[in-house]
Design a protein around this nucleic acid. Structure first.
Lengths: 339, 339
DNA sequence: CCCGGTTGCGCAAGCGTTTGCGTTCAGATT
DNA sequence: AATCTGAACGCAAACGCTTGCGCAACCGGG
């Protein structure tokens, strides 16, 4: 039924070996013969069986991409960009969506990915054990989203510096009580929350402001979490006049909480986020923008490069540029709105 | 290096056939032997090579999912949900991200998916030719997002009814000039924009309102497009007092345009969207909510059912429930409009 | 005219599973 | 005791490719 390599071999009057070589651009076939074979293959609608060829060659031409949550904007965007690079290079993408802890655990113990991929791009930060499991696959590995791991190609951004620019902006506007909505409850091996927090603390110290632990609330990197966190902060005896949210999603949650409390942004409270979510510009959120898609592209490219040259070790971490995006959610404390 | 089935066989002192049967729960193996084999396999860290087993069995245990744009919230969410169902059932997901027309065309002509998947879930609406190409794969097929195709399992919503409820809401509030931001430039075989438009027209007719073509603007289903479209509408001599956006993304674009024009929502202009984007609640957008993740889950489930029982033809279309979500962007028209 | 070197192609041995069929053997049936 | 019956397992043939090696035919240079 489905046409196999011998069918096109017979149609052309050559052996299967020649067909294989011709179709894959291998040397040892005359140009004339190659043309005939290609034509015949096209006419018959032949595609090599991936299972068979990867069994025979050991290459799968498939990249495994593991993601914590495809639905979230950040990961969706990175995946989108990476997939384009991979498919343009002739690789297929096998997607593993590791939402819940159980699924994640099962994945790393059973490793269904084994013998199925030529490389893996991890959009989640593997803990040390998980990283070891991946290394056991013996294929090139890469990660985005901070957190260096031995053996991994990593591309990320300067989280600390980004946080600094955000908080410095608030301090420069005159804010003294600036809160932070973080993701403290996230697993510790993920360094992003820590780095961003450090940036926050650095700037405060620099400005001679005593950090107040009460001004740090956990938003778990979700919209709802951000809303809860902001609500907590507003319940304080001395609420902050400005908050730095470690992600735009949390910042949007914060905006919502503020609206609910009938507080105006930025007149009553300033908010700055981090990431530059696709909708941040729409809501006018001041934020520090990171090149999300570009990170996906870059990680994919580096991975492919390592596939082409297996001897090259993992390159040193790549740091993508960030940019402070001043919009409409920040102003000096207790300001009157000007027209 | 990598452990194969014969390694397990030798370790247990049986033949490879028995190992295969034991590990896959096939009859013909004593329980005692099965236990020993399972133990040995676990100890050696054995995983069957997918290439080899699918070559031998003809099954790939892989589902192809083709998506127009993973990064968009809607598709990301559907994919997320579907992937969970597939992986829970032991299937892997092969992702094809068909953003640009060229990539899309190449995909459907070369069909790299051939011989690689047991079924395909298409999140984009294939045109008749593309649908035929997919049918040639001779595997179960499914689509979400409107547009019935012969041979496809389809799950969707009542787009027309949803649009009607949205527009009726506006009309009931007293609006007479209600505009629409649509996606008219989208390919014609995608029926969603058409259905939603029909719902819009139905309600107007029902209310005795003469439809004004000038009140329909194309937003291309993106935020920027929505913003442009709203800007066009505002430039009219008689701008609408309310607009129905065919998607939340376009609605958000519209909100942005309105803010830029210093118009207040809902006092000056009412806006209602469609989809219930994850951030719609955050911005308080009134919309008609559809169960996005549920549609992905359902489509995946139906596909798996057809895999289990290949004789069952494609089930008739499944229609998921929708719900009108009243929030804060709609109100009665203001008699006095500022300029 | 011979000869080492290409060039172009076929042969056949895998790659690691699955599976139809055959074999063995313990126990049940006459 | 002879025969029949399953159950449990092994044999070996696929599955559809890739690839090292061998072997003609052909090339130009000495």
């Amino acid at each position: 039924m489905t046409v196999s390599i011998t069918d096109v071999a017979e149609a052309t009057g050559v052996s299967a070996s020649t067909v294989s070589r011709a179709l894959r651009g291998r040397p040892g076939v005359s140009e004339e013969m190659r043309a005939r074979i290609v034509a015949a293959a096209a006419e018959l609608g032949y595609t090599a069986s991936r299972s068979a060829s990867s069994l025979a060659s050991g290459r799968t031409y498939t990249i495994g991409v593991v993601v914590p949550y495809v639905g979230r904007w950040f990961f969706g965007t990175v995946l989108d960009a990476a997939e384009k690079v991979f498919s343009a290079a002739g690789y297929d993408v096998l997607l593993y969506n590791l939402g819940s802890p159980e699924v994640r655990k099962r994945f790393f113990t059973k490793l269904p990915i084994r013998k199925r991929v030529d490389a893996v791009l991890s959009l989640l930060i593997p803990d040390p054990e998980e990283a070891a499991a991946l290394r056991a696959l013996d294929v090139p590995l890469a990660t985005t989203v901070g957190g260096a791991r031995p053996g991994f190609t990593v591309v990320g951004i300067d989280d600390r510096g980004g946080a600094e620019s955000a908080v410095r902006h608030l301090v420069n506007l005159g804010h003294r009580r600036v809160g932070m909505i973080s993701g403290a409850s996230e697993p510790l091996h993920w360094t992003t929350p820590l780095d961003r927090r450090q940036g926050y603390l650095d700037v405060l110290a620099d400005a001679g402001i005593e950090p107040d632990p009460a001004l740090e609330a956990d938003g778990g990197y979700t919209v709802e979490g951000g809303e809860r966190a902001m609500t907590e902060l507003l319940a304080l005896r001395h609420p902050p006049t400005a908050v730095f949210a470690q992600s735009d999603e949390m910042a949007m949650g914060a905006l919502r909480a503020l609206r609910r409390h009938r507080l105006r942004v930025p007149e009553d409270v300033s908010v700055v986020g981090f990431d530059d979510h696709e909708l941040s510009e729409v809501v006018g959120l001041t934020t520090v923008a990171q090149p999300v898609a570009a990170q996906g592209r870059e990680a994919a490219r580096l991975l492919l490069a390592r596939l082409d040259d297996p001897d090259a070790g993992p390159p040193h971490p790549v740091e993508m540029p960030i940019r402070f995006a001043l919009r409409e959610t920040t102003a000096p404390p207790h300001s009157r709105r000007q027209r």
